[in-house]
Design a binder for these strands. Sequence first.
DNA 1: CTAGTGCACTGGTCGGACCAGTAGGCTACG
DNA 2: CGTAGCCTACTGGTCCGACCAGTGCACTAG
Lengths: 250, 250
Amino acid sequence: MGGPRFEPVRAVRAYERVVEQVEEAIESGSLSPGQRLPSERELMVQFSVSRSTVREALRVLQARGLVRSRPGDPNGAEVLPFTPAALHKSMTTLARVAELSLAELVQFRMVLDSSAILLATRLRGEEQLAEMDAAVARMREAVEAGHDAFGAADVAFHDAVARASGNKLIQVCTDVVRSIVLGLISEKIAAAPDRVALMRQSIRHHEDVVAAVRAGDGPLAARLSRKAMYDYYAGYVPADERSALRALLE
Amino acid sequence: MGGPRFEPVRAVRAYERVVEQVEEAIESGSLSPGQRLPSERELMVQFSVSRSTVREALRVLQARGLVRSRPGDPNGAEVLPFTPAALHKSMTTLARVAELSLAELVQFRMVLDSSAILLATRLRGEEQLAEMDAAVARMREAVEAGHDAFGAADVAFHDAVARASGNKLIQVCTDVVRSIVLGLISEKIAAAPDRVALMRQSIRHHEDVVAAVRAGDGPLAARLSRKAMYDYYAGYVPADERSALRALLE
DNA sequence: CTAGTGCACTGGTCGGACCAGTAGGCTACG
DNA sequence: CGTAGCCTACTGGTCCGACCAGTGCACTAG
């Protein structure tokens, strides 16, 4: 051991301490979503820093998705309910900077989605099953209604599954990664010449998954969901990267 | 359809446009990690905004982990290589604000880690296997050396597996969630009365996993890894939440 | 009682100022 | 000639004061 280990005194900037205090108040629950922060001029008195410092702190908090400020609002900044927006932003950055391939993203979805299905099978209640049925029904109707409606119904299905998994982290990550994937290829999906056939195939797959969930066969449902996602997305993944996806199909 | 659909003109703040431009330059690669941004005073000329605006933009970019500025640096802010720091931050916030339970976090790790093992089994090369062996060897040595060394070796093992999966997203998420979990319970682990027994059991489990990977049995390796994580962490999860973890054990 | 106006606030932006810190050139000393 | 140390010209961090365009509310005039 030997004497006390001194830490390098990191010069902590004023705005960081403001951020920390407000963050702490929000995360500990002393400030709930919907409540208002004092105005910037009030905050600069309370923290005894200048308005520039307060504003820089608010910018950081805003970038983290914790508060939002609106010009002209007679109240101060609003404390926001948690949204995965910040998570989404940093994952999108990751996708661009780390050059995540579409294959990696789809593979990740296959993993999360099939796990969610597996968990949902164990916890399934009538309500969740009904939601999945309803989403599949809307997918059927949407084959004619156009691609947007179909996509929305599909999202609703997977969202219902993710919620039914009982794991909020799976739910959020599923949501974030899905929207990144769709942001990359939604226009290609809409323009696919065989999109009607793909939609019908996708509906059958979803029906099979729901049937397996209803029957209580989790591993089967998980396998079917991976297959469904592979069949739906593999066409947009470069051929030489598809083997990584097939690795998850057994 | 009808006429052109007008979008509400969202009042875009000046600092946001600065953020967008710099972000674009970084993500598109025109600015590489290690390069320097112009100084704040130079930026305020180039963007023709005030220094406050430039600084607020830099705060946002810094919060997103894209740049870092240091007082006194004769150069401007430094463009950083991507780190999951921002992802980590927003996921930690998620964990606190959305009240993620330890069970959910561990469950997520079980899902990701076992999937990584499954993928690593398909792609395994001698180099990856050697890394895993080395990590297990270090775990063996660390039983005496204390908990810190053991934890580090354990992290190295799972990191090697995640890298071997060939999926950077799995790698990053594994890393982030693991550090959140450890942040929650690392002191409890260090204080566990039966920690030596737990370490020895964990080593056996890891050896079994590596053996299964070497044998090419991905599903077995995945199942073993879920079991290993369950046995290691279940003791810290409230009893009434453990069933959610057992759902992944078959 | 209501419609309209004005006021007192808000956040967004600007400009200027000072400070402590850094790096690199310059000077003076060995 | 080489080097140690100072000096200066920058940097980012912070503060101050000011102005603007919005917003909501109270008050007023009809």
